[in-house]
Design a protein around this nucleic acid. Sequence first.
DNA 1: ATTTGTATTTTTGCATATAAAAAACAGTTT
DNA 2: AAACTGTTTTTTATATGCAAAAATACAAAT
Lengths: 300, 300
Amino acid sequence: MKGEAVYKRTYNRLIDYLNELKIGDPLDSENVLKSKLNASRTTIRKVLRDLELKKLISIASTKKILCRRPKAKDSFPRAETLSNAARIEKKFLEWMLRADPKSGDIINELELARQFGVSTSGIREFLNRFSRFKLIERRPNSGWCFQGFTEDFALELFEVRELFEMRSAAAFATLPDDAVAWKELKALEADHKILLRNIKKDFHDFSDIDERFHQLINNASMNRFIVDFYDLISLIFHYHYQWNKVDERKRNRAAILEHLEYIEALFSRDPMRIEFACRKHFISARNTLVSSIKEQLTVS
Amino acid sequence: MKGEAVYKRTYNRLIDYLNELKIGDPLDSENVLKSKLNASRTTIRKVLRDLELKKLISIASTKKILCRRPKAKDSFPRAETLSNAARIEKKFLEWMLRADPKSGDIINELELARQFGVSTSGIREFLNRFSRFKLIERRPNSGWCFQGFTEDFALELFEVRELFEMRSAAAFATLPDDAVAWKELKALEADHKILLRNIKKDFHDFSDIDERFHQLINNASMNRFIVDFYDLISLIFHYHYQWNKVDERKRNRAAILEHLEYIEALFSRDPMRIEFACRKHFISARNTLVSSIKEQLTVS
DNA sequence: ATTTGTATTTTTGCATATAAAAAACAGTTT
DNA sequence: AAACTGTTTTTTATATGCAAAAATACAAAT
């Protein structure tokens, strides 16, 4: 009744591990595997036994050796390695995109459970965790009320985002010269330039690079609350990118240019320049988000 | 299996309602009672039937009338009107104060469930909700790891708190003259002055007035994320006030004076004065918190 | 000292069961 | 027909059950 996601995940990891070996090579001890694969010895042992049954390895009391190269189909499908909780999260986000619930809509645990084919307790636990994003609100003894991704929501989100990132960017500028963050920023700058050259076909890749960039800056704050808040931003952007396709290439190109200016400002370590570039970027990012919300509202 | 907290709470509320009536008066209809007492009609009906059995009221198909005045012992004890979830929260906070878990300590659901005399699912749901405060962290397939109320934690908390409140205070200053917040601020100012006069005996009341004051300011931000963050601040202060008793009167007196200066600055609507007073208050508040954490560390 | 075999105990993750509460439905009465 | 009450259906809050995974223990082997 617990699902076997951990077992399958560990199994796949062990296969990946075997792929690094040559036939005849000995495997690490159970305890070493345990820490390498991040599972309990109990699970490791179960996997090892099953791999022996499949003649992938041979276990002779003291030494385990690889017998044949694993094939692709020796692994479990990735979907089966997801925990129930992860699966529910995925389904819920997909459902949100499809059903596009509006402010005031009520969601009910039983209905979602039926729709997703999982138990109510799973749904309940997920909604409880998800509520930290303030997109849903519990009504005691009744259901959950959808708060809607409204213009107000976006503006409040951006207010905090800007507040946090201005602070983080300032902190970034004071990092010591040998901090790894500078190297990562250099690498990101290069990636931005490459993407800018290939913008015609690769403009979709921006969302990824955008997240990496802002996350890098926010991490410089060394503040768990600021870093944590970026989870919400990521979620919203992931969600929002799904429906705002108009002018995407043009918008992304403009954003890359802003990022490059922002990066240059960071390298200059000049607080005024940083503040200026950061604020400029946020103004256009906010406008993009807000206008796409308004569009969405007129569509539906 | 659901507990009868809602029933008992509604029962008590209905008793309170009856206390407003004279013997022989008719009660409102079920639907009116439903909205007055904030419960479903189902629950209202159950309570009404039970009150009839106890001869407090008489129900004649169409009209319900009060038969005798309710006595104090007709109500249920307040403790029984708490939901299971609320009870667990209370117990957990008490437990935290007593056990004073340190960074790295592991808490386990089963153990807490046994200790609190509730089911593991109740504990699990609570811990899930509580984790938003970042004081505990889930270890998948293992327990929960206590993060500890360390100096770092306090500093990060204060960084965000200051960032938010500076913003809120600035927003407060731009509220229109007729906003209720100004009246509430006036009232709070008076309360501060009264408390200052009676500081010798009433210094304990400061914690309450402190929360009201900062909450009022933060509400002016009109930002759900900023307002929400104050839940964490409240929790931490409630928790922290329990063990830092040294110099409490002196500290509170100083804080009241800072508040009064801060309030005056708000009334002046001068951004510079506000920023100055706000920052000054936070510096001493942070020092108080940090030094009491250090003290706590040396004690244990 | 590190590994493994084996057995046992504990704890987690998830599903299910059930009483309480809410919501929906259907008559009545005014 | 609007407001009220009686009845039935649906949903939530919580406890319980159980398989999977983790943790523990210890002797035997290298």
